[in-house]
Design a protein around this nucleic acid. Structure first.
Lengths: 266, 266
DNA sequence: ACATATCTCCGTACGGTGTACAAAAATGTG
DNA sequence: CACATTTTTGTACACCGTACGGAGATATGT
């Protein structure tokens, strides 16, 4: 409800492509003059991730990261051009945690494994869901992730564009459900109200409002009640993801087999 | 790259369920004493949406909304408990724009229409994609949207839980692709760099980095190039959405028909 | 050895945010 | 007309990202 229910996003400034890419790939132009840096870029990124894991992306302020490292806020800017670039680095860094897939795994299994691995990553680092990347991060681990996803579905009968679309779709779906799951957990800990309690508090209020009569929303009332009860169970979003993924993979299978039949007969 | 590439999210405070629901449904307990309000809640919501349409959710600060209305910032707090609740109200208000579906429409067509209508809504109000709602907004138009989605797939052979899962899936996918589409547009206008230009600036830098050798990411290099060229085309995310939606609906169809065969034979 | 160029680090400052608090002004009721 | 109630507002606080400029450390050129 209201405030605690949502999270809003804010824009961030721009940055130099060259510098960001170099940071992502760890290219340190060897500086000769000047004092030796107390820290490394990785130190900064790790401290930021630690804060983000604990308090969300909003907990990552330059001042707090600096505090964490025992350094003044402004000195961070020698390692990182701005907070925005820092977040890019955090993202790529976190993607390093994703595990490779056993080669030769059937594509359905492989894609499901990847989805669940990603799902777990988002639960370890919920702040990743609070960041919307416009253009892809051109970092090594983000590349590796993409490569793995494509490898999982290579040669199953999709063209390049469809392969890209499928990875986008799966990633989007995982992200969507993970957001739901993570957000639910956050709300519980943040508001001290479980879903049940929240609903118990809201339902009577709603019942007092004539326009909100269930008769006006018959399906929503019926399905929402059933779904609401299930959502209370902790395992629900994971189950919903599995269901959704299974449908998607079925749909892909249909596409592939239809196409095979078509080319066989034509 | 870096900064301009992404958008981060921030948490917001909590709120009283009762008050928020009353605001959503327009229940104004008639106040007797005191000066007459200069504004209505709707005035505030409309002004906020106007700002958000123009400058994103970050453009909606209490000070700016107040300016827009010719009122002092703090006076807004008599209409709305906090910025967080205001955003809830904005969301529900915007959902009022969604059109109903002709009754009797085949479920595939209906769901596709809904998806595209929602897609257009997100393009009119990109800020809606910058807000992550944890628990559902209990407002009239959000209810209506849910009801319409369920009506579209009522009686096609899914149980209540599956119906809920399907609407969640479709909404998630539309949201995901819309985010991509909208974000791409924002980046272009915000950075003055088209995707082509951005890639043209980034590719050479990447080429200088040994570890980023395409040989290390063969599929990513091949598919990414093809996909990148297509993404340049403005219509691409819409096409990707149609592709994805078609796969999902195929998957649902598989589920339904398998089930029919099963019950017919068992 | 020494001057110098270059780098890291940091203190200060600016303009922005949401909103708590309390006073002031306006309106209806007794 | 007094009083209760409500709206409106000004001020203030703690926080944010980061521009700017100075101070100190270090390796290079001579």
């Amino acid at each position: 409800m209201g405030g605690i229910t949502h999270v809003s996003t804010e824009y961030s400034g721009s940055g130099d492509p060259r510098r960001t890419i170099e940071l992502l790939w760890g290219v340190d132009g060897p500086p000769r003059r000047g004092p030796k840096p107390k820290l490394s870029v990785t130190d900064v990124v790790r401290a930021a991730i630690k804060l983000a894991d604990a308090d969300g992306i909003g907990g990552v302020s330059m001042r707090r990261v600096a505090d964490e490292l025992g350094v003044s806020p402004m000195s961070l800017y020698t390692y990182v051009p701005s907070r925005a670039e820092l977040i890019d680095l955090m993202l790529d860094h976190a993607h390093a945690e994703l595990a490779p897939v056993e080669p030769g795994t059937h594509w359905r299994v492989a894609l499901t494994e990847i989805a669940e691995d990603t799902w777990r990553m988002y639960h370890r680092h919920p702040w990743m869901l609070q960041v919307v990347t416009g253009r892809p991060t051109l970092g090594p681990h983000t590349f590796a992730k993409y490569e793995r996803e494509l490898a999982a579905i290579d040669g199953i009968g999709l063209d390049d564009l469809e392969m890209d679309a499928l990875t986008t779709l799966v990633n989007g779906v995982v992200q969507g459900f993970a957001r739901g799951s993570v957000e639910a957990a956050r709300l519980v800990s943040h508001s001290g109200m479980t879903d049940d309690q929240w609903w118990a508090a809201s339902a009577p209020v709603l019942a007092e409002i004539p326009a909100a009569d269930p008769a006006n929303y018959p399906l929503a009332a019926r399905v929402g009640t059933v779904a609401g009860q299930t959502h209370g169970a902790a395992a629900s979003p994971a189950h919903a993801l599995r269901f959704s993924l299974a449908r998607i993979l079925d749909g892909i299978e249909t596409l592939i087999t239809d196409r095979e039949e078509h080319t066989a007969s034509g």
